[in-house]
């Protein structure tokens, strides 16, 4: 082994390479391809109005995926998001049924979601549990509590102004889509251009180095988990508004959808890399794929095959691109 070899630093990649070869560009290419293929197969997809209306079925998961992107970039994961949606929506529904009034009920829904996220954060930062397994535990727990308080009946009877937020539109854009876009811009700015955002990347890249650099890693993770719980509660309330009723099995299996959106967006599963732009594009990709399958009369259950396959392919390709970039 010669001495010069040890000093052989990796060559810097040319600028075009850095811009083009990244997971988000794969997402973008897939999205463009999906738009053309679906518009070619069915003229519906050439109509922006149709795509936007279809979006309302998946937008709750997209909103949660935006926040989960930050959690994953920080090196953690939250698998309890769908159970948090269900429990906070059920608490909201029961508070309303108990006659507490809508503003209070909504506050209870949002507050309980934040508390559930905070509890996840405590398990991860105070008890030092891996978030992967801790949030599986709370996923069972939150869904179980929802079943205890709501039973197997639907809770409904919400006032008219609350029901059907997906039918209210500004121009042709439904309100939930606007919420998604605004949150995407907001979180994109937080992650991309604030100190806090840089600290999230730093923590995900190397938590020990981050701690030595003076970043309060535990506090940062606590904030992210709480925000993830709160966002899940927002998703739960939006879904309650769309469906008009809440049940304990609301959004069952939603964690797959949310994780899939984040992974399709090219966020690195081991933390430290990923962008809101990727997640933003991934949601639209997923909407077109799923709506396309539904239009093509593929049963919802059979669609699971495609979603599972997509998830695995997404992490394989993102992994390969990041591994290539490091060399």
């Amino acid at each position: 082994m010669s001495a010069t070899e040890t000093f052989d630093a990796a060559k810097a990649r040319p600028l075009w390479h850095r811009i083009v070869v990244r997971p988000e560009s794969v997402t973008l290419l897939l999205l463009i391809a999906a738009v053309f293929v679906s518009a070619w197969l069915s003229p519906f997809f050439a109509d922006l109005r149709f795509v936007l209306e279809s979006a309302t079925f998946y937008i709750e998961f997209g909103i949660i995926a935006l926040m989960l992107t930050l959690v994953v970039v920080s090196g953690e994961i939250d698998l309890s998001v769908a159970a948090t949606m269900a429990l906070s929506a059920c608490l909201f529904g029961i508070a309303h049924r108990a006659g507490l009034g809508m503003p209070v009920a909504i506050l209870i829904g949002l507050g309980s979601g934040a508390l559930m996220g905070l509890f996840n954060g405590v398990l991860v930062t105070v008890f030092r549990l891996p978030s992967i397994i801790a949030t599986i535990g709370t996923m069972v727990l939150y869904r179980g509590i929802a079943q205890v308080i709501a039973g197997d009946r639907s809770v409904g009877g919400f006032p008219d102004w609350f029901v059907g937020i997906d039918f209210i539109a500004v121009g042709i854009v439904p309100v939930p889509v606007i919420i998604f876009v605004v949150l995407a811009i907001l979180l994109g700015l937080v992650l991309g251009s604030t100190l806090f955002g840089r600290q999230i990347y730093q923590t995900g890249t190397n938590p020990i180095a981050a701690r030595h650099a003076g970043i309060r890693v535990d506090r940062l993770k606590m904030i992210l988990f709480t925000a993830s719980g709160l966002t899940s509660a927002v998703g739960g309330l939006l879904m309650a508004s769309r469906l008009g009723v809440v049940r304990y099995d609301l959004a069952t299996g939603g964690e797959l959808q949310v994780v899939l959106i984040v992974m399709l967006g090219g966020t690195y599963i081991f933390g430290g890399r990923g962008t809101i732009a990727g997640t933003f594009l991934a949601l639209w990709l997923l909407i077109i794929i799923q709506t396309g399958m539904t239009v093509a009369n593929i049963a919802i259950e059979a669609q699971l095959t495609v979603l599972g396959l997509l998830l695995i392919l997404a992490i394989i390709s993102a992994n390969a691109i990041y591994a290539g970039g490091r060399r």
Binding site: G253, V259, F270, E301, A302, V306, L311, I315
Partner: peptide, 30 residues
Amino acid sequence: IIALFRLPAIIVTLGTLSLYRGLIFILSGG
């Protein structure tokens, strides 16, 4: 998949959980 691509088991098996469930429906016709 996990060994070959060095991926976390939890995400891979979350994917196959849904992949295999979908195959059940395709195989049995529901």
